[in-house]
């Protein structure tokens, strides 16, 4: 499933610059709010679900070359976080839904850990 389909099906807001999301197919999904867990557990080119919108998430996403970060609970990042994400070419997506629901819906769509 492409990132564009995921964005459409979950009605996600794209916070960073638009890319050709139809060309991106996430390798899997990881949910955690603890950066150390994400560093250890998330797959390269995967999707990361978290309610953290701290600037550190951009660094972790860039380091792991993640397809996108889905920020939950409408936890809108500050403008400088979005700017940094654009510089690092990290895609940030936003939803008002909690992590539990986002994980549930992605699982329902057939996505797996990777």
């Amino acid at each position: 499933m492409t990132l564009q389909e995921i964005i459409d099906r979950l009605n996600l807001t794209v916070l960073t610059e638009k890319k050709d999301f139809t060309a991106i197919t996430p390798s899997g999904v990881y949910a955690s709010d603890l950066l150390s867990c994400v560093m250890a557990g998330a797959h390269r080119r995967g999707l990361w679900i978290t309610l953290q919108s701290h600037v550190n998430i951009v660094a972790v996403a860039a380091l792991l070359d993640l397809s996108a970060v889905i920020i939950t609970e409408g936890s809108t990042p500050e403008p400088d976080v979005i700017q940094k994400a654009n510089r690092e070419e990290v895609t940030l997506l936003l939803t008002p839904a909690p992590t539990y629901t986002v994980a549930g819906k992605l699982w329902e769509l057939g996505l797996r850990e990777g």
């Binding site: 603890l34 950066l35 150390s36 953290q52 919108s53 701290h54 550190n56």
Partner: peptide, 17 residues
């Protein structure tokens, strides 16, 4: 909301958000 002076190790404990 979101103002925090907690160091990263506190965040990893689930606090300081």
């Amino acid at each position: 909301p979101g103002f925090s002076t907690a160091p990263p190790e506190i965040r990893e404990l689930g606090f300081g958000a």
